[in-house]
Design a protein around this nucleic acid. Structure first.
Lengths: 147, 147
DNA sequence: CCAGTCCGTTCCGAAAAGGAACTATCTTGG
DNA sequence: CCAAGATAGTTCCTTTTCGGAACGGACTGG
């Protein structure tokens, strides 16, 4: 099976990955969440090939994760901003950060800390069940395949 | 920059993606969480090339996400199981499922529902702050770059 | 006019993915 | 004994994608 057929799968993991499962895509989105909006800036920060960056931005726009918006005319130039759909990816990124901090050690100190905008306090992300308020772990939650 | 240099970055997103940001890797892990442990089974379910599957399993084992365990001798055969580090990825997968369910519509009905093992009730995943118990969103949490 | 900025595109060699066949090691059934 | 089946890969070859660097177009400021 080819990678780009994933979007037609019924499994939500497959559908999700068809959008963000590409190499570099989540790195691009990380920069978007950090407020980077311009092509040049992303390219410089990520070290990604211009070619690939242009391709990823195009795909993310086509998928409705980013939107391209003119920030000047003459010459016409666009910047990239997260749509609501894109912003909704925040928990995925945060979960990934949480995992990496705990299980993929860095050489030096880690580069990012999550803090509350309001209080400035450090935030500790945990995935919980909205109904019971309890943490979700592999042990007490299971996935049912719908018939 | 090359993709495999990501693991040396100080950003946790980059480090995380150096492990699971590869094409197919999260699909393989999805199957692991669903209890699939054998090469043949994964290959059949995923439709992935045998070549690529072998490669991903090798890398995941090398990264300590999966562990290879003999389930019979004569002939010696192994199966793949999640390590603790691997199981810790559950929130990432769940966050992805949540996003895809909400924003990447399937054609037919969705194939997976998360339920509590205890009560059988449907689980609604939300990322919260362990300290305050409040939901984490892009709007009220921000990432600080550590100097 | 020239340098600088910004957002791409083009070109080419290298790496990775897709597809199918092949190997190896047993077990089971006839 | 032989053929067929199960399991876990490997090998070979073609197609796709990536990495690196140069090039192009549309301006601005000096």
């Amino acid at each position: 099976m080819k990678w780009d057929k994933l979007k037609d799968e019924s499994c939500p993991v497959a559908r999700g990955l068809s959008v963000i499962g590409d190499r570099w895509t989540l790195m691009v989105l990380r920069d978007c969440f950090l407020g980077v909006r311009r092509f040049e800036a992303m390219q410089a920060r990520l070290g990604i090939t211009r070619h690939v960056l242009a391709d990823r931005l195009r795909k993310l726009e086509a998928d409705g994760v980013l939107r391209r918006e003119a920030y000047q005319e003459r010459p016409l130039r666009h910047e990239y901003r997260l749509t609501e759909k894109g912003k909704a990816l925040y928990p995925v990124l945060v979960a990934l950060i949480g995992w990496a901090e705990a299980h993929v050690p860095a050489e030096g100190p880690t580069a990012i800390t999550l803090v509350s905008r309001e209080t400035g306090e450090r935030v500790e992300p945990v995935l919980t069940d909205a109904r019971t308020g309890r943490a979700i772990s592999h042990r007490d939650v299971t996935a049912l395949r719908n018939a």
